[in-house]
């Protein structure tokens, strides 16, 4: 049924929601703006949370970072649920084609035993690192303030489960779906000396309360060290010896990392530019967590890269430092 309307008389009373007009002026709003800005409650809370009676249910005081307007922390990807899920679904279609290609041709199972063991030793345990990142990202979205930061953090939480499962699939492609490699990787993660220093720091993040510090520790510092080291440097070393089967699967992880970095960078840059106090806090967190995390990667880098490990770690650190400096931090 179509309704005849007298189009000449029909003028909208408002072109967008009032809160969006006050922020962006009298113009049509994007779906990102509609879904994001000023959505979270800010006033007249009813009860003291039993789990945190000193603060409100939504409370900006769960971090030491101070923002005049928490909605300054925009996501340059402009994700809302709809374009987030359709983007990931499309990317997954491409990933599935690669997985299928690798599986049909037994590309990972066809690698030499040494290489397969190296991948199980040095790559597959990262599924637990990703699960840790899922916990940390869930912490950011559960206790953060303002939809602008918490909504992409929720999506990042989901992403990290996706990445953990992608890495698990690498294991299954090696062990022919027996799950042996996943079991081996868990034992490595919980007991092997190569992985204990990193697990120690991941668990330290679990007890870090300030959600913005967790954001910096996990999403800026740890990821900036882990992703390039494992999925570029170690991946390249394996490819140099054994061809690019693994790279075809790490590629999705690196692309995701680069896409996500745009959001992380925008958040850090804006928060640092807000005040000297923020800048000092953020810089301090980057230094602290970099200095904690960097040495944890040495054993596994040495195992995978031998005498090239120091150079790889130095390059990764230099890239992190340069990135932080570009974002306005003093590291």
């Amino acid at each position: 049924m179509t309704v005849e309307i007298r189009t000449k008389g029909v003028k909208p009373l408002a072109i967008s929601f009032g809160h969006l007009q006050r922020r962006f002026g009298d113009k049509p709003a994007t779906r990102y703006q509609e879904a994001t800005f000023d959505i979270q409650s800010t006033a007249n809370f009813h009860y003291k949370p039993l789990w945190d009676p000193e603060r409100e249910m939504f409370d900006a005081r769960r971090t030491a970072i101070v923002m005049k307007d928490w909605y300054a922390l925009k996501d340059p990807r402009q994700f809302y649920y709809g374009n987030y899920t359709t983007t990931r679904a499309k990317q997954q279609d491409a990933i599935d084609r690669t997985l299928d290609f690798v599986e049909k041709r037994d590309l990972l199972r066809g690698l030499s035993q040494d290489t397969r063991e190296l991948i199980v030793h040095a790559i597959v345990p990262l599924r637990h690192y990703e699960w840790g990142a899922n916990t940390n990202s869930a912490h950011v979205s559960a206790y953060g303030f303002g939809t602008a930061i918490t909504s992409p953090a929720m999506m990042n939480t989901a992403d990290r489960l996706g990445m953990a499962q992608h890495i698990s699939r690498i294991g299954l492609l090696i062990d022919g779906n027996s799950g042996d490699s996943l079991q081996a990787a868990q034992a490595l993660w919980t007991d092997h000396a190569d992985w204990q220093p990193l697990r120690r720091e991941v668990e330290r993040m679990f007890v870090t309360r300030d959600w913005f510090e967790v954001f910096v520790a996990q999403l800026l510092v740890a990821d900036a060290l882990v992703y390039p080291l494992f999925f570029q440097q170690i991946d390249a070393a394996i490819a140099g010896d054994s061809g690019s089967a693994l790279s075809s699967l790490s590629d999705a992880l690196m692309r995701w990392y680069e896409e996500t970095a745009k959001w992380i960078d925008a958040v850090i840059k804006t928060a640092a530019a807000e005040s000297a106090d923020n800048k000092a806090l953020l810089s301090g967190w980057v230094q602290t967590w970099r200095d904690r995390l960097l040495p944890t990667l040495t054993p596994i880098a040495q195992r995978a890269l031998g005498n090239k490990a120091d150079d790889a770690l130095a390059a990764t650190t230099a890239a992190l430092n340069a990135r932080a400096a570009k974002l306005g931090l003093a590291v």
């Binding site: 359709t86 990931r88 679904a89 279609d93 599935d96 996706g162 499962q165």
Partner: peptide
Amino acid sequence: MDAYWKYQG
């Protein structure tokens, strides 16, 4: 997660 993305997407 991948099934979730596809289904919901």
